[in-house]
Simulated scan of single mutants.
Amino acid sequence: MFRAGHLADLSLADLTVVADLGISHLYDFRRGFEQEHKPNHPSVLATVDHVIHLDITPGNHSGSLEVVTHTGSLPAETHQFMCDINRELALSHQSSFKRVFEGLLTDPDAIVLVHCAAGKDRTGFAAALILLALGVELDVVMQDYLLTQRYFLPHEQIPALRDKYGFDGVKDEVLEPIVATRREYLQAGVDAMLEHSGSVEGYLLDAFGVGAVERQLLSERLTETV
């Protein structure tokens, strides 16, 4: 299983790397507008057997990004928005993440790529769910999530965010929390899981029907003994 951002701007070298992964199932969490803005490279789509669009719109319950972000916004407000949408991922988008679990459980040979626009929030949460289901300690899951800081650099992404949403007049320091990768964001989603079900294991069972049997099956399919 792999996670990524959008696959629109891949170089020839990138395309070779992706082709060598042998992806069979691609789960795209982007909404329609995002898919049109940055369509995945046709060479990738041509080699994938199953492309599943799950269309997660962050903030459609807590207030959209376009509403929260304006010329009068403060950095603390966009930071809180990012925490809120991670809670929302846990509480309001369970059906989309359940589809990923179902794919992993029903096809033993699946090689899965999950992605959104940045590979950070929607995708980062999906990856965290899978790792937690495999019994990975939360501290290690958090370290994996924070690896995004190496590759998704805010100073490079703020111009792209302006291009995508037209945030003219909005200060960089207000936009920075949106493209940042912060521990508090994923922790907000985990906290929501615990509030919902009392434990990670309880949440996995309640939200996705992933109990002990399913977790063992995932472990057999997605891990190696070393």
Rank of each mutant, 00 (worst) to 15 (best):
G169C: 06
P75K: 00
A76W: 00
E201T: 13
H155P: 02
T181H: 00
T181R: 04
E184R: 01
D163Q: 09
G189M: 08
G166F: 07
H6W: 02
V48T: 07
R87H: 10
H155W: 02
S199W: 10
T225A: 15
P159S: 02
N86G: 07
E220M: 13
L45N: 07
L45E: 15
R3M: 08
P108Y: 07
S92T: 04
N40S: 14
L205I: 02
D163V: 10
G63A: 09
L91R: 15
K120E: 11
V44A: 09
V170D: 02
M142N: 05
S11D: 01
P154W: 04
T106V: 08
T78E: 05
V141Y: 07
V68W: 08
D84H: 12
G22Y: 00
Q149S: 08
S62F: 03
G119L: 14
T57R: 12
L146N: 06
D20F: 05
L134N: 04
L132Y: 03
E77V: 15
L161R: 10
Y185S: 00
L222K: 15
L147D: 04
L26I: 07
D139C: 14
L132R: 15
F33G: 11
L134P: 03
V48N: 01
H93C: 15
V48A: 02
A46E: 14
I130F: 10
V48F: 01
H70E: 10
Q157I: 02
I158F: 09
S11Y: 01
F97Y: 15
A76F: 04
S219Q: 10
I23H: 06
E224V: 15
L204F: 13
F97K: 08
V226N: 03
H37Q: 03
G198W: 14
L129Q: 00
I178Q: 04
L89E: 06
V100L: 10
Y165F: 11
K120T: 12
D109I: 01
S64Q: 07
H79N: 08
P42K: 14
D84I: 09
R183P: 00
Y151M: 08
Q143N: 08
Q94Y: 01
G189N: 07
E220S: 11
Y27Q: 12
Y203H: 12
K38L: 09
V114E: 03
V136C: 03
M193K: 04
L138R: 14
G198L: 12
L161S: 06
H41Q: 05
N60F: 06
A127S: 14
L217Q: 10
Q216M: 10
F152G: 01
Y203A: 04
T123C: 14
G103Y: 11
G103T: 10
T123K: 08
Q157K: 07
V190Q: 00
T225I: 11
H70W: 02
M142D: 09
D144S: 09
M193I: 06
Y145N: 12
A118Y: 01
A212L: 07
Y145A: 08
A13H: 10
S64D: 04
H6D: 11
V179E: 00
L129T: 05
L15N: 12
H155T: 11
V48W: 02
L129A: 02
F152L: 12
L10M: 10
V136S: 01
R30W: 09
A90R: 06
I158P: 00
L138H: 06
A128L: 03
E176H: 11
T181L: 13
A126T: 12
D107K: 11
G166W: 02
